[in-house]
Amino acid sequence: MDTDRQATLTAPAQAAPLCAVPRRGRPRSEAAEQAICEAVERLMTEGGSLADLTIEGIAQAAGVGKATIYRRWPNKEALLVDVLVRLEEPEPLLPGTSARDDLVVILDFMRRRGLAKRSRWVLRVVLDQMHSMPALKEVYYEQVVLRRRRAIHQVVARGVAAGEFRADLEVELLAEMLIGPMLLRSVLWDDSPLDDPELPATIVDSLLDGLRGPAHSAGTV
Rank of each mutant, 00 (worst) to 15 (best):
P214E: 12
E142P: 00
K137N: 11
V104R: 06
M133C: 02
Y140D: 06
P214G: 11
E176S: 15
T8L: 15
A61T: 06
K137F: 08
H131C: 00
V64E: 04
M1K: 05
T45W: 03
L169N: 00
M130Y: 04
R158G: 13
V85M: 02
I203M: 02
T220Q: 14
N75I: 12
V122I: 15
G213L: 05
E33G: 06
P200N: 12
R120D: 15
V145G: 06
I152P: 06
W121G: 02
D82Q: 08
R124S: 15
L53W: 04
M182G: 14
G47S: 03
A67R: 10
L80Y: 08
T3L: 13
I55R: 05
T45I: 12
E56D: 11
M133S: 06
P74A: 14
R166L: 14
C19P: 04
S98T: 09
V155L: 01
D102Y: 12
S98W: 08
L184D: 10
A16C: 10
D102M: 11
W121D: 01
V21F: 03
G25M: 02
S49V: 06
R212E: 10
R28V: 14
E170R: 12
A157D: 01
R147M: 05
A157C: 00
R185S: 15
A135S: 15
H153K: 07
L174E: 12
R147C: 02
P181A: 11
E142V: 14
S206L: 05
R71F: 12
M1V: 07
V221A: 14
G213I: 00
I69K: 02
V64Q: 07
Y141V: 01
D196S: 12
P95M: 09
A201C: 02
V139K: 07
L93A: 12
L183W: 15
R86I: 06
D108I: 11
D205Y: 03
Q6C: 07
E89C: 04
A35Q: 11
P214S: 12
A116K: 15
E38V: 00
G210C: 06
V144D: 02
S98C: 07
L53Y: 00
S217G: 04
T202G: 13
D52G: 07
P12C: 09
S29N: 10
L211P: 09
A62P: 01
D82T: 13
F109L: 07
L169C: 06
A161H: 13
L136K: 08
A151G: 03
S186F: 05
L127W: 02
S186K: 13
A35Y: 01
D102P: 12
P95G: 07
I179D: 04
D2N: 15
P22Q: 11
R149C: 05
S217Q: 14
V105C: 08
D191W: 08
G210S: 15
T54Y: 00
L174G: 11
V21K: 05
N75C: 09
G25E: 05
T202K: 14
V204D: 12
G163D: 08
H216T: 09
T68P: 09
A51E: 13
Q154R: 02
L80E: 10
S186T: 08
A11M: 10
L211F: 14
Q143V: 04
L127M: 03
P95D: 03
A201T: 11
A11R: 09
Q129C: 07
D205N: 14
G47L: 03
A39I: 01
L84C: 06
L79C: 04
A13M: 13
R158S: 01
P74K: 15
V105R: 05
V145I: 10
A201W: 05
G159R: 06
A39K: 01
A162T: 04
V139M: 11
